[in-house]
Write a protein that binds this DNA or RNA. Structure first.
Lengths: 134, 134
DNA sequence: CATAGGCCTTCCACTCACTGGAAGGTCAAG
DNA sequence: CTTGACCTTCCAGTGAGTGGAAGGCCTATG
């Protein structure tokens, strides 16, 4: 199967798959014409990658997860640790964004949003004595 | 004032300030020795930038906000629009991350995390029929 | 006066995870 | 034989900096 079909099946752009090969995440064979030749296992791997990336795992996390995935003797604790670390990072990011959102909401709420030049958003951003919000 | 002092006052690394000059966000003067010479207005601008970046505004948003900040005739509605657009992007991101978090939480919860190779996280990530979660 | 160190300067390369595009080869259909 | 859809490689750019090298400047001390 050529890259186009593999891309469609895995739900990834062909360009991304070439990139994944570049960085050693997948190693499809080659036809005599030089085209990449994907087998079912390659597509499965790509699907795995697509899911993991959708969940926000970094490429390096994906590399580790793939290695564990291919190691039938792995301990589930290893996988769990990666997932939990990632979960912690996501939760931290959510808190960060929520703080930003709250600050922004306050600013937007206090801004008349009319033709007058008076704007509490700019005032707040420019205040040198203000503690950096969020 | 040299870049080090400006950096300390604005709460930004000197490298970042040089970068901001590079992309035209600030235009400090120069001493005869070639050192950047920052005046209070420059530091104020940098403080503004630091706050806006902390709130997650993109550099291009910051450029627009700075222009509005310097335009005493601006309409507060212009500022408000930028802030509201940004707020919407942040809220969308929060939802994304919350979905990720929920999926990951489920996976982590279902994973024994022991020495056995059996791992629902890897199973779920590799399942080709599975709808991409989150 | 020399030198040490702490600033400052520029420039180049690297990050992350792709994405866009150019230039060119291959293949099946009409 | 040509068209058009594929495929190939390679180069460059994204955002927002960060790290480091090579070298200039300034102040304080011996």
């Amino acid at each position: 199967m050529n890259i186009g079909e593999a891309a469609a099946k895995a739900g990834l752009p062909a360009k991304t798959i070439r990139y994944y090969e570049d960085i050693g995440l997948v190693k499809p064979g080659r036809d005599t014409n030089g085209y990449r030749a994907f087998v079912a296992a390659d597509v499965h791997k790509l699907t795995f990658l697509a899911h993991a990336r959708t969940l926000g795992f970094s490429i390096e996390d994906c590399r580790d997860l793939l290695a564990l995935w291919e190691d039938t003797d792995r301990a589930s604790a290893d996988v769990r640790r990666i997932a939990q670390d990632h979960l912690a990072r996501i939760e931290a990011k959510i808190v960060d964004l929520q703080n930003m959102r709250d600050t922004l909401k306050t600013l937007v709420r206090d801004c008349a949003g009319d033709d007058r030049p008076d704007c509490p958003i700019l005032q707040s951003l420019g205040d040198p004595h203000k503690k950096t919000p969020a």
